[in-house]
Design a binder for these strands. Structure first.
Lengths: 302, 302
DNA sequence: CGGGGCGATAATTTGGGGTTATGACAAACA
DNA sequence: TGTTTGTCATAACCCCAAATTATCGCCCCG
């Protein structure tokens, strides 16, 4: 393990440049004895002289020549470290790992990624679609920088900002078009198709109907909103979907979309990140962008 | 002009390695506050955080990851400055860190160390025995000056010189002494004991028998050639060992050693070092010595 | 031989970088 | 829900490394 310091290298670089202790010292804004001592010390550590102190001039030894080129490479590399910092500083750039729940991802993510990429050229976005519980774990483990989930998550270590509220709408077979829209109690009597266990959207829908999740119910579970809507289209039952999913999911299926009267079921979608994350300022800024994108997406949908 | 110091980089390297301020401080033989302060200072100079301080763990930021690789390059370059000094004096002296694979080390290393120490009084030899993959990593990281492994390694940044070829011989229970020597196909039918995954010698033996490593095979894996030979002695199966290992490993066990007919299995042992190493000329000279030593060892064995 | 330029050495000061002790806070625990 | 524990930050202090100024020694030159 060497004890060479960057100061020694800087002084030696200056000395090699000027061929003169006094002027090198000036260049380094130090006194002449200081540089003399540092160079001597460096030579002792290396066990070999670097400069030949002539009567009227100092000249590098052969080894000193080799040494100074290597030393300059190092000094340059160190200076570039500062640039590296400046390059990646402040601005939104580099890798951003974002997790989104499956009942949001297909409808919002393409727009988010598009907008963010357009706004921030140097941004390298990695997307992960997964259930809330898994997203939270990955957030904690540092596998994700942020996530978009339904609030609240109520984790003290996480910051959560609300993005928007979204209503749930009823999806029923096209044939039911003219029937009155059921209320939450009426809904409980119908054959309600839901996502499988683990999706927060399932719990949110159940809670609207005042049904205990644990209660054994005869429901047919679909694995994606698409599947659910397809099944509704074949007359198997009814389902709820977030309104943002309406344009995409009901495009090619004969189903009827009906809004509920008050109290309208809805959930709050938000963005979360670790309070300790150094990206926090950037993430807050990003959350503004996401909110904009979402508002746009929802006005288009409505 | 940056004020970054090598100490800061060394400490940060340690912190990145350990992911823990306290342990990193231990590794640097300083107190925990010292490293905390230095890292904080570094972050202030860079104007950007390097690590995310979680309650239970310290994690590098994306920028920290970039930074640490650059920093390590610099630290290695600085360490090489010391080598440069020694090399420029022409002599072979100072610290020499040499890595050797486990299927070579016991049979060759004592002689190598003995000879080199005798030839070069000022030489301080450090030996490391490990698998090829680990040796290559340590070579790149500047933890080793050179390594003796099976060629080829085909790394563009490394110089490789061949030292010698060594044949593999069959080790079978003493009772099989009078049976004919199997060929590579016959070998496939026998119960072949091999080193565990990761040893290059395992792969070399398998490739001789034309067996895919991935292929699920019923083999009993030993962790050293000694163990393998002992197991063969108890009649469990057969194995291959490099001929250099014969005198040491078969001394006290009732086993039969048989050479294969053509095509005889063999491998090439060579010495490797970083092309950028300032010790390159000395290492080449050392490789001549090692080659001599190996030739001597093998004629004794034969 | 005396003077001036230059680097080395000596004596002294100062602050960077270390230490120990302690605080703050989140996570784990009971 | 307190309590304990692990972990990093902060505070107060200390010391030696590395400056500074002053001076010396030396060689070349006039």
């Amino acid at each position: 393990m060497t004890n060479i310091t960057l100061k020694q290298l800087r002084y030696f670089d200056a000395l090699a440049r000027h061929g003169h202790f006094g002027r090198a010292a000036d260049a380094c804004a130090i006194s002449q004895p200081a540089i003399s001592m540092r160079i001597k010390e460096l030579e002792e550590e290396l066990g070999t002289p670097l400069v030949e102190r002539g009567a009227r001039q100092v000249r590098l030894t052969a080894f000193g020549e080799d040494f100074v080129t290597k030393a300059r490479e190092i000094l340059r590399a160190v200076d570039e470290l500062g640039d590296l910092a400046r390059a990646s500083q402040g601005r939104i750039a580099g890798r951003l790992r974002i997790g989104v729940i499956p009942t949001i991802a297909p409808y919002l993510l393409p727009r988010i990624v598009g907008r963010l990429s357009a706004l921030h050229a140097g941004l390298d976005i990695h997307v992960r679609e997964s259930l809330t519980s898994k997203l939270l774990t990955e957030l904690h483990d540092g596998k994700l920088d942020t996530a978009i989930v339904a609030l609240p998550v109520s984790e003290p270590a996480l910051t959560e900002v609300a993005l928007f509220d979204e209503s749930f709408v009823l999806v029923r077979p096209g044939a039911d078009r003219d029937k009155p829209v059921p209320d939450r109690d009426g809904l409980r009597e119908m054959r309600l198709l839901l996502l499988e266990e683990g999706h927060c959207f399932r719990d949110q829908a159940l809670s609207f109907c005042n049904i205990q999740s644990a209660m054994p119910r005869e429901t047919l579970d679909g694995s994606s909103l698409s599947t659910l809507v397809q099944m509704v289209g074949s007359g198997i039952g009814v389902t709820l979907i977030p309104e943002m999913a309406v344009p995409v999911e009901t495009r090619a299926t004969d189903v009827d979309i009906a809004r509920f009267g008050a109290p309208e079921p809805k959930r709050t979608i938000g963005m979360i990140w670790r309070k300790s994350s150094p990206l926090a300022p950037q993430l807050r800024e990003i959350s503004e962008v996401v909110r904009d994108v979402a508002r746009l997406a929802r006005t288009v949908a409505a």
